[in-house]
Design a protein around this nucleic acid. Structure first.
Lengths: 217, 217
DNA sequence: TAGATTGTTAATCGATTAACAATC
DNA sequence: TAGATTGTTAATCGATTAACAATC
């Protein structure tokens, strides 16, 4: 029925978009007006072919013989990433990580508004973090009834995250940004993006050890 | 010269290891003694083929007709990931994210000791976060001279991260866990693992919008 | 032994890279 | 126009999946 998105765009391409976006932002700051896929490829350490393939998933943003207009390309990728759209988000878990995320100013600039923080600890309830109120987790249902929420950011302990995730999905929230080390078992109508910090650190450790062993001859 | 690692193991395989490790840890908690690649594949949502291929990069840990001994496999993957080895780490940037990471108990359990925190703000210097002292960034050099440091965890603003990363590599630190949104330009003898939170959130937003648009028919 | 399941080779699939005609 | 560089098709590469002989 729908016209667009005949060709399914692979997740690998999607995950590169924010990186293109950052590099283009840097180019704008450097007052560079146009760039070829070749020059961008050198800056980013990827092939020019890949850049052209990636961009052409979404449209022909360049011009033969000229390259890409930096500002135009930046805007187009911004549109693809939905920088112009706003998401309303809640943080569940007002621990250290929840605190850090609540204080991260960058999310708002990217279209993500944090509208509430939830915790089970009564001592935290009623406090304010970066102008955002902390509510009791039991008030989540009534909160969501009054205010639409797109994304739940889960910074609760691993032992509690499945329970919290079920609650959140039952309330109709469709996106979860999961900071707990646990994989969530949820239906396919919910989008989950994981930030498994320990996993990332362990991969760093593996690569580091590999490098050190390799160079020791 | 060396016997092992004739075949280069792909980074895709490495990045799956922590996930296997977590699932096996869960199985141990459930008191499950043995598991076939088929059953594990169903739990993890990947193919049994992939599990067997991945594990056989490192050795034959299973037994025909039986499957894998959970505890043994857990130990082996732990060894591959170097859970038994210790890394000494410093955090640079005592902001909210630095604070959150300093308070994360899990890293120590995985072999990563945070031995110092550094910041440029004199008001933070001398304070203690989770029993770890905060030093002035200018004292980094003398600190590293006295105490070996494997990994620098960078939670400084994007505007400062390249400068800090150069300093850190000049002092001989070989691993960087980078939490700033900036890509680091460094030599090839240093291992960098990035945690680009904004990128991750933007990918979530893209996937969420795609899902919502798709289901609206 | 018979059944189950691995380790491993072969086939498939998808993603990356190369090549080049189109065109600014 | 000539040169440069895209958009796009074709070739390559690597990763995933399937198949099955080996064997517990």
């Amino acid at each position: 029925m729908r016209k667009k998105e005949e060709k399914k765009i692979s997740i690998a391409v999607i995950r590169r978009l924010p990186r293109y976006f950052r590099y283009l932002s840097d180019l704008i700051k450097l007052d560079i007006k146009r760039i070829s896929s070749k020059e961008l490829s050198q800056r980013m350490g990827i092939t020019a072919s890949q850049i052209r393939q990636d961009l052409n998933c979404f449209g022909g943003f360049g011009q033969q013989g000229y390259g890409y207009n930096v500002e135009l390309l930046y805007d187009e990728i911004g549109k693809i990433l939905g920088i112009d759209k706003r998401f309303s988000c809640i943080i569940i878990g007002a621990g250290n990580m929840g605190n850090a995320l609540a204080n991260y100013q960058n999310f708002r600039n990217r279209g993500y508004d944090i509208v509430g923080i939830f915790d089970a600890d009564p001592r935290k309830v009623g406090t304010v973090i970066n102008d955002i109120k902390v509510y009791h987790i039991d008030d989540l249902e009534s909160f969501v009834a009054k205010q639409h929420v797109d994304i739940a950011i889960l910074t609760v302990p691993g032992s509690r995250v499945n329970e919290v995730a079920s609650k959140v999905t039952a309330l109709g929230i469709k996106g979860i940004w999961n900071f707990s080390p646990t994989d969530l078992k949820l239906g396919s109508d919910i989008v989950v993006e994981n930030v498994h910090l320990s996993d990332s650190l362990m991969v760093l450790g593996y690569r580091l050890r590999e490098k050190l062993n390799g160079s020791e001859q």
